[in-house]
Every structure is written in structure tokens, then in C-alpha cells.
Nucleic acid binder design. Structure first.
Length: 473
RNA sequence: GCUCGGUUGGUGUAGUCCGGCCAAUCAUUUCGGCCUUUCGAGCCGAUGACCUGGGUUCAAAUCCCGGACCGAGCACCA
């Protein structure tokens, strides 16, 4: 099987589906995974030189390694050779009709005068296309199918056209005569031994078009499955390479890995594993109707994968400072409630704590600072320790909330798909590394992206802060 | 206009080829309960679907015909 990406930009989430399914089938049935870059349009779908490696990276991240990687732009001579054979078989002809004229003829089921040229002339003119004797638009090579076919989409389609814009890859920059997808892909699928093709419903007619070429050569067409488009909920940004590119260039997104972007790079930075993506994608199946992928499905899988390993930590969003008196000097919540053996965190309290505004109890009421103990709000800005037993929580009278010390916490920024959230995290996170996954208690899982160098919160520069990317609840 | 294809709970999916064991599977979501110093995990439970109208049949999600709705192609894009 193969994935045949157009390297015109890094992948968005939808692109992962093909790699996920092909990779999974490969693993399951001991198959063959070909990654072929269909980069045969240097102009309107101009390849992005960085995208080749970024796409291969994304495939690796999903957990697969292609058996073979090809670039169509390396294979022009091969396509020319097969085109010449096809001409000799009488299966193709050069055509100098203006596109609009031909379209009209075609829609009426009428052939154009060029259709009956003898192979000699066609060969010469095709060589002329390769040699650059014509301007773009002047000449194309068409496959001779059935000009009266009841489906107009299949009638004498274009196999090669001329493009003046040089290909961005140096190796291919000299070529001007480029094959169309249906020709290139049809030839390559056969030559590389592809037995099963999966592609989008937008290419529903491709197999029927290519069948004409296969018939001329007496080849057997692979099994083909067409699937619908995927839409992903939970993102404001449309899943389109060109739209995302525009938003980045316009400064509305920070880059391809901005947590607001529906891209592979974004999910990766948020600490969502390739495995979770693959699982959700394969679950979608291959139906021809369009499908909606719920991000919650990816999140649920990822949560299962990371929950056991992710240490717990406190992150207070936009804290309210409360003086605190009468209690112990530190709180000691567990590193992981299901794994006592991993020990406890130690959070110094000082003389004041930060809690989230929404957690602030009315004056006179109590609240349980998780891992510390019960406190009562005595006035506008103060708590006093009550020494109540955990029973008060069990009885349901007292809510358990998270907190951080007011003076020795670390400023932090949590980047989420809905924008950035600022606040403070407990000082112990300074000992963590980039890439570590944590669960911010009562908020959700996050991947640490940048941790200040300091070991003591008071040594952190004024501009420095901990940066984490929100994964999911 | 011509030509393809699709339609099972909020979402995805199984079942459709070869009609009966489908008062429809599984996952996720939502909502309850238990447990819990998390709105996490775990356990228990609940809500919730065969697009529509005919036909064939003892029997239709499944076969046939019509309709509605959705999507795709008719590019010198992929």
C-alpha cells in the first residue's frame, strides 16, 4: 500500500488518517508501506521543500516507518518512457486545442481533430513538449479513452501538460513537461507493486480514468477503496493546509505547532501520542461518507496511555492571594494518588497562598487545600487553619481545591487550543524536564514545554516563566 | 445539466454481499450512583439509532423500486 502526499506543507490531522490506516494494515498483514510524494505540479500545488522531511517525521511520530520513499519528481524519465509506449499503442495523442474548446467538444461527446493523428506525429510532438518547443497551454498529451463515454469526467483526459515554473527541487528544476496525477500515479502504482489503494472520494473517477491506461498495457488494476473526508471538531481553524499557512503568515497563529492549529505538529507538542491518533483514525474505518472525528476520542485514548506515568501538580489560573495562618509550613500531596510508592511532593506554604477565584469560599466557610488541610476564610483576604479531620470532606461539607504558595510559586503559561492561560505552578516543577507530562490537578494533562533554569523560584528572571501545552482533560 | 457515491444513537463503528440467532455490537460522549484529599482513574447503571414511502417475503437494517437529504467528479490541481 502507499501514502501519496503532496508535499505542499506540513500535515494537518486529516492527513494522519492515511498513514495511520496504511501503517496499521502494514503491521497487521505484514504488508509494504510506500511513501510516494506526488509532487508533479510545481505551480498551483507548489511543493514546499521542508515538507518532505516534515511529512516523513510525522509518519515516524505516528509510529511507522515506510519501506520505501519515492519522489515523483525524480521519475519523469520513467513517465516519459511509458507515455511513448502508450503513443505507440495508439493510446494517446498530442492535442493543441485551447482548454475551453476541448471542453466544449468533450461535453458534446465530439472528438477533436488531433485525435486521429498517426503515432509518428504524436511521438514527435510529445518529444517537442519535453524539449520545450511549445509554450504552456499550447500542447498537451491526452489519453484516448472513449469520447462518448457516458461519464464526461472520463473522456480523453490530459496526461501531460507544460509548466514553465521551475520545480523547487533542484534535481527536477529543468523539467517543463509534467504528468498529471492520474497518469503519474497510475504508472507508479503498477510499477511499485501497489496492490491496495485507499484514496478520497474526490478521486472517485481516478481508477476509472487510469483503467484505460491499464487496459492499453494489459495491467491489472489494484483494489481501490474511496473514503470520505474527515472533519475534526474542537478547532476553530479549518483543516486546510492553505488556510493554516495563511493564518501563520498573517501572524494569527504562531506556527504549525501552535496549539490552536489542527495539525500533527500541534498535537505532538501538546503531548498527544501518535498511538492515540492512530487508534482514533483506524476506528473511523474507511466508509465513503464523510466522517466527523471527535477529538475526545483521541483524548480518551491518550489519557489511558499517559495517566499512570504523569505526575500530579498544581496550577492555579489567575490566582487570588489569601493570607494563611496557624497551619503547618508545608503541604504534602502525593505525586500520584494511585501510586503511593512514588512518594509525596513538598510544597512550602509561607504566609499566603494563591487559589483560583472560582474556588474562593464565602467568608466564614471552609475549604480543603489539597495535600495541606482545612482552612476557614476569616475575612476578605485571609484563611486560618482549622485542623479539621478529612472527615469533613467525606461528609461533603468542604470542597477540595488546589493551590500554590503566594511567594515561592513559579509563573506559568498554559497554551491551549482556546488560547493561552496564565497563572502559577508549584515550585517543585522546576525539577522537571521539557517533554515531561504532568496532570494539573482539576485542570487536565499537559506537556511541559519550557522549564526555567533556576532551582529556586526566587531566582527566576522577571521575563521567565514555565510554559506548558495543554493536552486534554 | 451529465455522471458517480453515500445515509445505523450526539460522534465513530459492527451487522448489509449470503434476509431469520438484530427488541441491533463496541468505543467515545452525556447523565446518575459508588469510590476517591482531582472535574482524573476505577467500578456500577441510564439515556440514545436502522433517512423516507412503497414492494417482495412466513420473516427486511439487510433484497427491489420511488423520494428526500448529503457528498464527489465533469481542471493543462493533488
Amino acid at each position: 500500500m502507499r501514502v501519496a502526499p503532496n508535499p505542499n506543507g506540513p500535515w494537518h490531522i486529516g492527513h494522519a488518517r492515511m498513514a495511520a490506516v496504511v501503517g496499521t494494515y502494514k503491521d497487521r498483514y505484514d504488508g509494504y508501506f510506500l511513501c510516494r510524494f506526488d509532487d508533479t505540479d510545481p505551480e498551483t500545488k507548489r511543493p514546499d521543500l521542508d515538507a518532505y522531511d516534515e511529512i516523513l517525521d510525522a509518519i515516524e511520530y505516528l509510529g511507522f516507518t515506510p519501506n520505501r520513499v519515492l519522489k515523483a519528481s525524480d521519475r519523469l524519465e520513467t513517465y516519459y518512457a511509458y507515455a511513448r509506449d502508450l503513443i505507440d499503442l495508439g493510446g494517446a495523442y498530442t492535442c493543441s486545442c485551447p482548454a475551453e474548446d476541448f471542453s466544449n467538444l468533450k461535453n458534446n461527446g465530439e472528438s477533436c481533430p488531433h485525435r486521429e493523428k498517426d503515432p509518428e506525429t504524436v511521438r514527435d510532438e510529445f518529444q517537442g513538449m519535453i524539449d520545450g518547443l511549445y509554450e504552456p497551454g499550447e500542447m498537451v498529451l491526452r489519453i484516448k479513452t472513449d469520447i462518448e463515454h457516458k461519464n464526461p469526467a472520463l473522456r480523453d483526459w490530459v496526461a501531460f501538460r507544460l509548466i514553465d515554473t521551475p520545480h523547487p527541487r533542484e534535481e527536477a528544476a529543468e523539467y517543463r513537461c509534467w504528468p498529471m496525477l492520474d497518469f503519474q500515479s497510475g504508472i507508479d502504482d503498477h510499477l511499485t507493486g501497489v496492490t491496495h489503494i485507499i484514496r478520497g472520494i474526490d478521486l472517485q473517477d481516478s481508477a476509472k480514468r487510469q483503467q484505460f491506461v491499464y487496459d492499453y498495457f494489459n495491467w491489472e488494476y489494484p483494489e481501490v477503496i474511496h473514503w470520505g473526508h474527515v472533519q475534526v471538531d474542537a478547532f476553530d481553524v479549518p483543516m486546510s493546509t492553505s488556510t493554516i499557512k495563511e493564518l501563520i503568515e498573517g501572524g494569527e497563529l504562531d506556527g504549525w505547532d501552535d496549539p490552536r492549529a489542527p495539525t500533527i505538529a500541534s498535537l505532538r507538542r501538546r503531548g498527544i501520542s501518535g498511538e492515540a491518533i492512530v487508534e482514533a483514525m483506524t476506528e473511523l474505518g474507511t466508509s465513503t461518507s464523510n466522517v466527523d472525528l471527535a477529538m475526545s476520542s483521541i483524548y480518551a485514548t491518550n489519557r489511558e496511555l499517559i495517566d499512570d506515568d504523569a505526575d500530579r501538580a498544581f496550577f492555579v489560573r489567575d490566582g487570588v492571594e489569601m493570607d494563611l495562618s496557624g497551619g503547618p509550613e508545608r503541604g504534602q500531596p502525593p505525586i500520584h494518588p494511585n501510586h503511593e510508592e512514588r512518594g509525596k511532593r513538598t510544597i512550602p506554604v509561607g504566609s499566603a497562598v494563591l487559589i483560583e477565584a472560582a474556588d474562593l469560599p464565602p467568608e466564614g466557610e471552609r475549604v480543603w487545600l489539597k495535600g495541606y488541610g482545612c482552612v476557614r476564610r476569616t475575612d476578605e483576604r485571609a484563611f486560618e487553619y482549622t485542623d479539621d479531620d478529612i472527615e469533613v470532606v467525606r461528609e461533603g461539607d468542604v470542597d477540595v481545591i488546589h493551590w500554590v504558595p503566594a511567594t515561592t510559586s513559579v509563573r506559568a503559561r498554559l497554551r491551549t487550543p482556546d488560547g493561552d492561560v496564565t497563572g502559577h505552578v508549584e515550585p517543585g516543577l522546576l525539577g522537571y524536564d521539557e517533554d515531561d507530562m504532568v496532570q494539573f490537578v482539576r485542570i487536565g494533562f499537559a506537556r511541559l514545554d519550557a522549564v526555567p533554569e533556576a532551582t529556586d523560584p526566587t531566582d527566576i528572571g522577571a521575563d521567565d516563566e514555565l510554559i506548558a501545552y495543554f493536552a486534554h482533560p
